[in-house]
Structure formats: structure tokens, C-alpha cells
């Protein structure tokens, strides 16, 4: 394992300190916690938005804290959901009476920890609602009770809920638009290499020199299907077709595109994928309203990418375009 760290056990703490050191005028770390919050939190008369999850997905989630997006991000250990007490601190720090929306990615651990935090907050009289992002179409089995995972589409949920909250909408309204975003966003990822959790020191799976993994999650877990590596165009088509089918996108509809790098993939390759995604959508008469290419939801140093499409209507377009001062999503 080759990593630029001091100690696997302090990696998350060091990262959080380094993050606040980078943006000291914009964010603060709640003392003694793993919560990064807007410097000016709680913001008066605004619904607070809290998200988070395991670390190792940088710039998620702290990079999305800022005016127009999240009020706080709660970091767990690498790939490990943060604990209820930490999430509870995040909720308390951003609530100013207007209530708090939790944006949770659909993993058993995240759900349980965030739900327990919500129970703690409600016990203190804070109005908490939650949405669960489940954009990953890799697992489509209907017998599948755990449900889909939440991956890169979560960033769009942050953006849109954040913009709605910034407009002064009520907790119910913010929750509704977040739900609407979730209904209209789908993603799927693929990887060429595994990644190494610092405290584990070894890769979570092995891939041969000619293999890739389709339907990969963002926690170094194996994907849904392993096959021979193919061209960027074929990969782009496979991923995009799955997402289009899932959303039932039709000619004339409008989407936002995200081609997300998983951490170790050169940006060059993401743009090569984007070329084909763009072509495919254009060929199908689907209008691309905006495109995001880069690292938004990573999996440490994993090489690979995911494709996310978000179906847009006028409301979502306006909210997507709204100003954001989050370091990792400036608009």
C-alpha cells in the first residue's frame, strides 16, 4: 500500500483538518467531531441540509458544504458510516428552527446511523426529515429488498435540495424537490482497479490486467459483473444505455450528465467517455442541458468512472443553475 498519509488511524482526522485549513473562511469543523459545517451555520430562516457517509469519497461530502448546497457534512471512517452521535451534532449545528433535511445514501449502515441520529434530534424537538438516494442501477433485481445503492447521483440531490433551501423553501418543499431529484436520477459505475482502505492495507478484490468490473459501488466492494476490458466507447454505451433504460428517457427530454471519476482515472479518460455519452444521447434526441465531468464521488484511488443522468424539468434546471459556493461545486 502506497499512500501519502501519516497513520491509517488518523487519516480522516488529518483530512478534515486539512480541509478546514484550505477553506477557513467558508467552513468550520465542529470541535471534537467529524462534522464540517458552513462557517455561518446555523443560517437563519433556512432549512438545514446535512449529508455525509464514510470517508474516501472526496470531494464528497465536505466539498459540497457551502452556500447553496449542504450546511454540514458528517464524515465516518473510510467507507464506514458515521455514528449517530456525530450526525446528531451535525443536525444540531445547522438547525435554526426551520428544520433539517438528511440526505442519506442507501446503505444499511448509513440508514441506521442517520435514523438513530434523527431519533435523537426529534427527541430534542428538532424537525428532521430524510431522503434516501438510490441512483445505482447496477442491481435491478426486483426481489432485492435492500434496494439500490446511492452513488454519484447524490451530488445532484445535494445541489438541488441546497438551492431550494437557499430560496427559503420549507422543510417539506425541500424534501419534495429532493425526492423528485431522486426519482429522476440514475447512475452506474465501472472500475479497472480496486482500491485500498488505509487501515486494511490490501485491496478489497483483484482484477486481472485484462479485466474490468461493471456495476461497481463506491466502497471498494466488488461489482455486479466482471468481464474483459473493452473500449471507452463500448463502456460508455453500456453504462449510458442502462441508465437511459432505467429512467425511461425519451427523445425530446432534457438531462444533466455527470461523468464521474472514481479517484485514480485521468481526466483525459473521463472526457473520452463523455464524448460517447454525448453522442449517444444526441443520437437518441435527448437534449443535454449541462455536463459535469470530473471527480465528484470517488472511491479512494480506484480507477474507473460512473455515468449519471438527471432528467430535468424547468424547476430542476433553475435549481441546478443556482449559485453554489461549495468548494467542489462552484456555480
Amino acid at each position: 500500500m502506497k499512500k501519502i498519509i501519516n497513520d491509517p488511524n488518523s487519516a480522516v482526522q488529518d483530512m478534515l483538518d486539512g480541509f478546514v485549513a484550505a477553506y477557513p473562511n467558508d467552513v468550520k469543523r465542529l470541535p471534537g467531531t467529524t462534522v464540517i459545517a458552513r462557517k455561518d451555520a446555523p443560517v437563519t430562516n433556512k432549512v438545514g441540509i446535512v449529508s455525509g457517509g464514510g470517508s474516501g469519497h472526496e470531494p464528497a461530502h465536505a466539498g459540497y458544504v457551502g452556500e447553496g448546497m449542504l450546511d454540514a457534512a458528517v464524515a465516518g471512517e473510510v467507507f464506514t458510516s458515521p455514528t449517530p452521535d456525530q450526525v446528531f451534532e451535525g443536525i444540531k449545528a445547522v438547525d435554526n428552527g426551520a428544520g433539517v433535511l438528511l440526505v442519506i445514501k442507501n446503505y444499511t449502515g448509513d440508514i441506521m446511523n442517520f435514523e438513530m441520529a434523527a431519533e435523537l434530534a426529534e427527541a430534542e424537538g428538532i424537525n428532521v426529515k430524510q431522503v434516501v438516494v438510490n441512483d445505482d442501477v447496477a442491481v435491478e433485481d426486483s426481489s432485492f429488498t435492500t434496494g439500490r445503492r446511492g452513488i454519484a447521483g447524490t451530488v445532484f440531490v445535494h445541489k438541488i435540495a441546497g438551492a431550494k433551501a437557499a430560496q427559503g423553501a420549507s422543510l417539506e418543499e425541500v424534501q419534495a424537490v429532493a425526492e423528485k431529484t431522486i426519482q429522476n436520477v440514475s447512475s452506474i459505475g465501472m472500475a479497472l482497479t480496486p482500491c485500498i482502505v488505509p487501515a486494511a492495507g490490501t485491496p478489497s478484490f483483484e482484477l486481472k490486467e485484462n479485466e474490468m468490473e461493471i456495476g461497481i459501488g463506491i466502497h471498494g466492494e466488488p461489482g455486479i459483473e466482471r468481464k474483459e476490458i473493452t473500449t471507452a466507447d463500448e463502456i460508455a454505451v453500456e453504462l449510458t444505455e442502462k441508465v437511459i433504460a432505467d429512467l425511461g428517457l425519451k427523445s425530446g427530454e432534457e438531462v444533466a450528465v455527470m461523468v464521474n471519476g472514481l479517484g485514480g482515472t485521468p481526466e483525459m479518460e473521463l472526457f473520452i467517455v463523455n464524448k460517447k455519452v454525448n453522442q449517444l444521447l444526441s443520437d437518441k434526441g435527448i437534449t443535454i442541458y449541462d455536463t459535469f465531468v470530473g471527480e465528484y464521488m470517488t472511491s479512494l484511488e480506484m480507477a474507473g468512472c460512473s455515468v449519471t443522468l438527471l432528467r430535468l424539468d424547468q424547476e430542476l434546471k433553475t435549481l441546478l443553475d443556482a449559485e453554489s459556493k461549495a468548494p467542489a461545486f462552484r456555480r
Binding site: 464514510g54 471512517e77 473510510v78 467507507f79 464506514t80 482502505v197 487501515a199 486494511a200 490490501t202 485491496p203 478489497s204 478484490f205 459501488g217 466502497h219 471498494g220 466492494e221 466488488p222
Partner: peptide, 16 residues
């Protein structure tokens, strides 16, 4: 424990 979790999970159970 971590290696068991690497095989079918995300490789943190032993650490956790």
C-alpha cells in the same frame, strides 16, 4: 474479519 468483509463487503468490519 476484514478479509471476510473484503470478499463480499467493503473491507472494514475487522477495523470497525
Amino acid at each position: 474479519l476484514t478479509s471476510l468483509d473484503q470478499a463480499i463487503g467493503d473491507g472494514d468490519h475487522g477495523i470497525n
